[in-house]
Design a protein around this nucleic acid. Structure first.
Lengths: 197, 197
DNA sequence: ATTATTTCACTGCAACTGTATAGAAATGGA
DNA sequence: TCCATTTCTATACAGTTGCAGTGAAATAAT
């Protein structure tokens, strides 16, 4: 019965994600958004609930992709998997590596003004999820090493999260997805030091 | 001969700095800027060269203040002065500690769209200055320790800069100027480890 | 007091914002 | 073919943006 849609929903979300990632939320007008995603204004409103709705959808898409592609291995792993995650932050081709930094970091900084609780929750949830993954991997590691482990999982996990933010922020600032490598190397060497041979 | 101005220039810059720090550049309209700074539109245009001119002035003010208040000690110091700098990032009352993160980090992330070369230069210059201060302090430290120092100054300096960004980003994201403390502690303990008794 | 100069408050302007609405176009069943 | 339903394009709308212009107010030297 209905007329067929002129866009592919998932494809539009992917394009919207890239667009917001690069330009931010406020700077990206609805008309430019149409152009970059292939959506039309009616679709943005009826399918996603307006610009903010579409943004929220892209945030969820980004989070899910990052979690399943980059974080997930840490749940079954230890320090080596954390090291892999950090290396992914500055490895071209990785989901979590981009000249535009990280959509969540960017949102967290921009959202201070927008003050949208929905956006705030999405951001907070992402960082909680990351910290949880770090924590699980560190607890796995601790269980493997026994009581002699030279770190406290929950404290170390809490300090790795802002390090991730800093790598992203540095990448975006330099518009270079490998710019944060020195800190990645430092973190990785510290973590490796916690893992006796 | 001239009519006296209704504002104090330095006071206006200070207020503008706080306003931009909290709200960002794009989100803060000229009319709200008037309200928050005590300036009038004519003054913003004639005295500062419009909104972007005023923003640039606040960036310079912020940079100068941060450099002289927090970075300067590192030029004559070593690792203890670097440690002090990091602690300042999460110490209420410090110039470099704020619930709104860091004006320069925020600008670096927001400016990806604005693409103003003047803003870009201000940001880049700030991070270069910080890295230079780290480098000098580390070289001082190395000179004091002799050839046995367990770090390479220019590599370590380059990795400390994104760590600073991450602490700021974390603070802003949590709207809590002490939120980045776990990473601060981690960095400080690493640095202290580089300094034999 | 008159004058020249500067700063002021106020209004106007074109461009843009996100959203809403209206009518045309497409679709598949009756 | 006609119809109900959905999506499309296009226009309209009220609100905001940064900036420019205009005449009044203030100031200090003449």
């Amino acid at each position: 019965m209905p007329r067929q849609k002129s866009y592919d929903r998932q494809n539009a979300i992917t394009k919207a994600c890239n667009a917001f990632w690069e330009h931010g939320f406020q700077s990206l007008g609805v008309r430019e958004l149409e152009r970059l995603t292939g959506l039309n204004q009616f679709a943005i409103r009826s399918e996603f609930g307006g610009k903010e709705g579409l943004y929220l959808e892209t945030l969820n898409y980004y989070c899910d992709a990052a979690i399943s592609a980059e974080m997930a291995p840490m749940k079954q792993g230890g320090i080596p998997e954390i090291v892999s995650f950090f290396k992914g932050l500055v490895t071209p081709g990785s989901m979590t590596s981009s000249d535009y930094g990280c959509l969540i970091v960017n949102t967290g900084i921009e959202n201070a003004r927008i003050q949208s609780p929905r956006l705030e929750n999405a951001v907070r949830s992402y960082w909680n999820t990351l910290e949880d993954h770090f924590l699980i991997a560190l607890e796995n590691e601790q269980a493997e090493q026994g009581e002699g482990a030279a770190f406290t999982p929950h404290i170390l996990a809490a300090s790795l999260v802002p390090a991730v933010m800093g790598i992203h922020a540095h990448n975006r600032s330099h518009r270079d997805q490998t710019a944060g490598r020195p800190l990645v190397d430092l973190i990785c060497s510290i973590l490796s030091g916690y893992r006796p041979l």
